[in-house]
Write a protein that binds this DNA or RNA. Structure first.
Lengths: 198, 198
DNA sequence: CCTACCGATCGGTAGG
DNA sequence: CCTACCGATCGGTAGG
């Protein structure tokens, strides 16, 4: 399993990463110039390079920081003794929470990872496959335990994870819905779709 | 409601659009050069301009051709007298079918529309909101008819539509699943999540 | 459909 | 953190 290192990060560098995440989301990675990032950070493009190594370093930071957080919560969860339905609900709530509160970064990790340079690209996809397979196993155990319907576990995983991306629409237009109400509605719909009726 | 015109399109231009859709998907709109599109079409970049007006024309063609097809099927559907559950199933199946068989174009319309130039961008978002609201009304009618659970109809719509994007994972790795099996598994999961248990 | 070429902008570096 | 600047590449045009 590929490890993601904890890195001491300067506050200035962190700020630049946040700005980059916002712009990478709004305009896409390739269409975002270093000059735009610099402008939002209140400096010249050349000065950015005192804080970061390259444009792709920023993308790498964002993608792997997200990947790392998702991996961590899954590891924590597996140490728990909750029912599989509770465990799944917990994963889905975490995804929704991140989608709501770390929107730009999650969006970039979800949609702009293809611009990672070769080595980091493979590493990222490796982490993601690893995550998918752990979740698939969770669903499999839930089916065996009779908690979930007899679905294809992998299809269930990618469907559930994708469904949460509906929150992208909410960010564009919240339709007067509070985050809490949004989360509750989505999770109900998703769990009803997979849990074994009794 | 914004109209999308039917346009007579030369076979060569259609071919170029297909190539563009593939590259816009794989590399993103901004990172795709006219020289790459030209190379795949077997000509020089300058020659492309005998068939198209500009790079953004290609994006516009792709996005609105997709928007148009989705609007059309919804209009056709509303002329039918199927139950609301059947109507919803039909919409979801159409989305899955497009996601499977017109993958590149659908992906571009889903993920690269933000690079449309100002006027077309608003027109595209307008069509999309119109589509969303028609679907939301379908869900509302289904709730009133007692066919669907008491969910927020708009949340249900964006969740359902997003869930189908799970097929993106399947394109990257089909996991040995046939399109038919994939469609069946997803639609079962989604319908169970929203239909009223009896 | 090609050659030749345009101005603009890109990520990044040198040197202070 | 800045000024000044680099080579590369971009979308697109002129003219044939």
């Amino acid at each position: 399993m590929p490890k993601v290192k904890d890195q001491i990060i300067s506050p200035r560098r962190f700020e630049i990463r946040q700005i980059a995440a916002k712009l990478f989301h709004e305009r896409g990675y390739s269409a975002t110039g270093m000059r735009s990032i610099a402008a939002e950070a209140g400096m010249e493009a050349a000065s950015l390079y005192n804080h970061i190594g390259s444009k792709s370093d920023l993308l790498e930071d964002i993608c792997f920081s997200m990947a790392d957080q998702f991996m961590r919560q899954l590891d924590d969860l597996e140490a728990s003794d909750a029912t599989l339905q509770q465990q799944l609900a917990s994963v889905l709530r975490f995804h929704m929470h991140m989608m709501i509160h770390a929107y730009h970064e999650v969006f970039v990790a979800n949609n702009e990872w293809k611009h990672l340079p070769g080595t980091e690209l493979s590493r990222f996809l490796q982490v993601r496959r690893h995550y998918e397979s752990k979740l698939t196993q969770l669903i499999e155990r839930g089916i065996k335990a009779g908690e979930f319907r007899q679905v294809d576990p992998w299809v269930a995983v990618v469907t559930l994870l994708s469904a949460i991306r509906g929150i992208e629409y909410w960010h564009r237009n919240p339709h007067g819905l509070s985050p809490r109400r949004l989360e509750l509605d989505i999770i109900t719909q998703l769990l009803e779709g997979i849990k074994q009726p009794r």
